[in-house]
């Protein structure tokens, strides 16, 4: 009984901010208020037509897609090397590749900002994408490493003995069997990249900024419920992506149980 009550309280505590934002987004007046004084979707209309949000949403898609597309192959190669090859200083390399997890975003952002300014790349998506690749890599590497560790090297030897060249072994055996790890890595990459704020704030301009940065800029200047509407849309979109990915992941898990006897 008590346990159940604790769980309910915990769930309420964890979902409270979301609920407040969603409810506040339908307030008809020009103030962020809770509870709302009525029901209106005008702020949704405003959010969806506000040019800076539209531009930022497109930027988010570009940056997230590009960083995931880069981080996945790089992270997979790194995971294979870290698990499979008897590297000297393996611990050191692992630490370096996972370090973005512990370096404060402000520090990383500042470093990238200085570097980008020096190279004259500030008005470019490239810096933002590079930053996201760095931030996403630890998650990708971690996920793929688990799958690599579970992959029986004898399968690759078997394929080689049957006449498969190294890249064919990779294509026909290694890659398909890493699929669960790659799905998880992709999911992490999308979530981390889409929500990344601190580092992005440092290295983006008005033209390249992604949605979280645009939202921050808006809330600094305005106090109407548009922010709450954008947040709700953002939460909804993330939910859809995560749910879809989890369905895929779930399928692949079933597939994996099937494969491991």
């Amino acid at each position: 009984m008590i346990a159940r009550a604790v769980v309910v309280l915990l769930l309420a505590f964890m979902t409270l901010p979301t609920v407040v934002v969603v409810v506040a987004s339908v307030n008809p007046t020009e103030m962020l208020a809770f509870p709302p004084s009525g029901f209106s979707l005008r702020w949704y209309e405003h959010a969806l037509t506000y040019p800076q949000f539209r531009r930022a949403a497109v930027n988010s898609v570009i940056v997230t897609a590009a960083s995931a597309a880069l981080a996945l192959p790089i992270g997979t190669a790194a995971a294979l090397a870290l698990v499979r090859h008897p590297l000297r200083l393996r611990g050191f390399w692992t630490a370096v590749l996972l370090s973005p997890l512990v370096v404060p975003g402000v520090a990383a952002g500042l470093g990238l900002l200085i570097l980008a300014a020096r190279l004259g790349l500030l008005a470019n998506h490239a810096v933002l994408i590079a930053a996201h690749v760095i931030l996403v890599l630890p998650f990708v590497i971690r996920s793929v490493m688990v799958s690599v560790a579970n992959l029986d090297p004898m399968l690759e030897r078997a394929a080689a003995s049957l006449g498969a060249r190294p890249w064919r072994v990779f294509r026909m055996v290694t890659l398909p069997l890493l699929r669960p790890g790659l799905f998880a890595a992709l999911l992490f990459a999308i979530i981390v990249s889409v929500n990344e704020f601190v580092v992005s704030l440092f290295v983006s301009t008005r033209v390249t900024e992604i949605l979280p940065v645009a939202m921050f800029t808006y809330v600094v200047n305005y106090t109407d419920p548009t922010m709450a509407a954008v947040s709700t849309l953002f939460i909804g979109a993330t939910f859809v992506v995560v749910f879809a990915a989890d369905r895929l992941l779930h399928l692949s898990r079933v597939f994996q149980i099937d494969t491991h006897r």
Binding site: L155, A158, S161, L177, F255, D258
Partner: peptide, 20 residues
């Protein structure tokens, strides 16, 4: 010469059948 060029048949203790 790498294994894939040798044309030998190998059977492993763990069978090593491709699960997928």
């Amino acid at each position: 010469q790498p294994a894939w060029r040798r044309g030998l048949g190998v059977v492993f203790q763990s069978y090593a059948l491709f699960p997928h």
